[in-house]
Amino acid sequence: MDMVKTLTDKLSIEQVKIEILNTAYGYHQTFLQRLDPRTLFLWYLVFGVVPFFIHQTSVLIGLALFLIVLTAMAKVSPLIIFILTLGLLTQGGSYLIVGLFFGGEVTAMLPLLKLTLKLSVISMASIVVFCSMSPEKLSDGLLKIGVPGQVSFSIGYAYRMLPTLVEEYHHIFLSYRLRGKAPVKKGLFYSRQLFYYIKLLIKSFYPLMLSVAKRSRTMVEALESKGSLYGFNHPKVKQLKLQHLKIKRRDVLFFGLSISYFIILIGIS
């Protein structure tokens, strides 16, 4: 029980809030950050898709090593790496257990390990790419490759609104707690308490829905008065907005070198 207590202390809502904001806004100046978003997209298209169809273990290990180096270079937050490994382990583990139950042997491990390796290569590729793009860069990059302007606006809007929304939701949740009465008995495995809190979590969305509705109306009216809804997909506006995106020498070098590494890996094995 002591362990649970220390764990809950560490996982207080404040802490979680801070960690979320850290993950969302904490950007380091890394090498990958300075690359053009289009280079990163193209790189991702290769390293995030092709590994899925590679079955040689040596190539996969080589790729994994390369991506581990890149992940270290991208200075990804530990929280994300923790979530990633946890997800991979639980998925692979559950398949293994049920596979054994259906009369498989321990050799069932090997192809599954390979699949896990494959999936981790793919996830690392996406983490490397999308963690090294600031929101502005990501939305500009998306706009450049032809995603509708509403999407790139939404990314910017989400980054702006997140702290406000979290704060407001937390307030509503706390006021529900103040007015409500928590169950006296904890129930089996804290089930009563758990259901009480989940019910509050759901109910808190009702006032939030109304206030967010008001806010989104204000937002859209502000957008309208600036003519943004018209400008979202206007070619000239886009051109003006995306002037700063340029493919430089380091983009070509990075892309070329990593692709040649990939090809050499496949060639060797």
Partner: peptide
Amino acid sequence: VWVGVEELDAVEGLAESVVVI
């Protein structure tokens, strides 16, 4: 899983276990 794991038949019970899970 069916696409990602090569030689799916070689691993006994994997195909079924994925469906069951």
